[in-house]
Amino acid sequence: MTGHDDWVPFEITPGNTGAEATARGLTAYLQGLDDLAGLLTRKKALVFRDFGVTPEELDVVMDELLPNRLAYVHGNSPRTKVGKNVYTSTEYPQEFTISMHNEMSYAYAWPSRLLFFCQQQPGTGGATPVVDGVRWLAALDPEVREAFKDGVRYTQNLHGGMGLGKSWQDTFETQDRAEVESFLATTGSTWEWKADGGLRVHQDRQATIKHPVTGDEVWFNQADQWHPAGLGDETAKALAQIMPAEDLPQNVTFADGTPIPAEYAVQIRDRGLDSAVDVDWRTGDLMLIDNVAVGHGRRPFTGARRILVAMCD
Score class of each variant (00 low, 15 high):
residue 64 E to V: 10
residue 78 P to A: 11
residue 244 P to S: 02
residue 207 A to I: 02
residue 29 Y to T: 00
residue 54 T to W: 06
residue 77 S to V: 13
residue 29 Y to F: 13
residue 228 P to M: 03
residue 19 A to P: 05
residue 309 V to W: 00
residue 78 P to I: 09
residue 195 A to M: 10
residue 186 T to G: 12
residue 62 M to K: 12
residue 161 G to K: 07
residue 303 G to Q: 04
residue 41 T to A: 11
residue 132 D to K: 03
residue 149 K to Y: 11
residue 58 L to Q: 06
residue 98 I to N: 02
residue 44 K to F: 06
residue 56 E to S: 14
residue 73 V to L: 13
residue 144 V to G: 03
residue 274 D to P: 08
residue 236 A to M: 09
residue 27 T to R: 15
residue 302 T to E: 12
residue 214 T to D: 09
residue 39 L to Q: 14
residue 7 W to A: 08
residue 118 C to V: 02
residue 77 S to K: 12
residue 244 P to A: 01
residue 231 L to W: 10
residue 131 V to Q: 02
residue 31 Q to Y: 12
residue 182 S to K: 15
residue 208 T to A: 12
residue 210 K to S: 15
residue 239 L to D: 05
residue 295 G to C: 09
residue 85 N to P: 05
residue 24 R to T: 14
residue 109 A to I: 12
residue 112 S to C: 11
residue 284 G to N: 02
residue 279 V to S: 04
residue 212 P to A: 09
residue 21 A to L: 08
residue 212 P to M: 08
residue 32 G to M: 05
residue 101 H to S: 05
residue 113 R to Q: 08
residue 230 G to F: 06
residue 192 E to Q: 15
residue 283 T to L: 05
residue 15 G to S: 15
residue 129 P to Q: 03
residue 146 E to L: 13
residue 253 T to G: 08
residue 224 D to F: 01
residue 182 S to E: 13
residue 97 T to D: 10
residue 137 L to N: 07
residue 76 N to S: 15
residue 162 M to D: 11
residue 280 D to L: 09
residue 187 T to Y: 09
residue 147 A to K: 00
residue 297 G to V: 01
residue 107 A to V: 09
residue 256 D to T: 06
residue 57 E to Q: 14
residue 141 D to V: 07
residue 215 G to F: 01
residue 259 P to D: 12
residue 165 G to R: 05
residue 31 Q to M: 14
residue 233 D to F: 15
residue 11 E to N: 12
residue 95 E to N: 13
residue 51 F to M: 04
residue 235 T to E: 13
residue 267 Q to F: 10
residue 272 G to E: 00
residue 194 K to I: 09
residue 256 D to A: 10
residue 55 P to R: 03
residue 261 P to C: 07
residue 63 D to T: 14
residue 66 L to H: 02
residue 215 G to R: 00
residue 65 L to Q: 06
